[in-house]
Amino acid sequence: MIVWVLYDIENDKNRNKVAKFCKQKGLYRVQLSAFLGTMERSDIDELSLMIEPLIDEAIDKVYIFTMSQHDLKKCKMLGQAFDKKLITDEVKSLFI
C-alpha cells in the first residue's frame, strides 16, 4: 500500500532519526519532512513503534497515512510537489 509519512519534530537529533528510519523502511523523501513509498501493514506498525519514543507528544506531530495507488493518482499536486533535489524523475514515475 502507498504510505505517506509527514512530520514536524522540534528536536534535530530525533527528527534526523525519524528520517533515517523512513529511509530504512524504503520510503522516498519527497520534501524535507515528507516521505512517500510502499509498505506492508506490519512495516507501518513497526515504523510507528520506532518513531513513537522519539517524539514529544506535547509539541511534535507525525502523520502516517495510507492510500491506494488509484487514490494517489487522483491527488492534485501543485507547484513543486516533489523537491527536485530529493527525488528523481525515475522515483516520481513509480507513484504518479
Rank of each mutant, 00 (worst) to 15 (best):
L6D: 00
Y7F: 13
Y7P: 03
E10M: 09
N11V: 05
K13C: 02
N14W: 06
R15L: 11
R15C: 11
N16A: 13
K17L: 13
V18Y: 00
A19G: 07
A19Y: 02
A19M: 08
F21Y: 15
F21E: 04
C22L: 09
Q24N: 15
K25I: 04
G26A: 06
V30R: 07
Q31Y: 05
L32K: 15
L32R: 13
L32N: 15
S33A: 12
A34Y: 01
L36K: 00
G37T: 05
M39N: 01
E40D: 12
E40S: 06
D43T: 02
D43C: 03
I44P: 01
E46Q: 09
E46M: 12
L47N: 03
I51W: 02
P53Y: 10
P53S: 07
L54M: 04
E57M: 02
A58I: 05
I59N: 07
V62E: 04
V62P: 00
I64A: 03
F65C: 08
T66K: 10
T66I: 05
M67S: 12
M67I: 07
S68E: 13
S68T: 15
D71R: 13
L72I: 09
K74H: 13
K74R: 15
C75G: 07
C75K: 13
M77A: 14
M77N: 06
G79S: 10
G79L: 08
Q80T: 13
A81V: 02
A81I: 00
F82W: 11
K84E: 11
K85V: 02
K85P: 00
L86V: 08
L86F: 14
T88I: 10
D89I: 07
D89L: 11
K92C: 08
K92R: 14
F95E: 13
F95L: 12
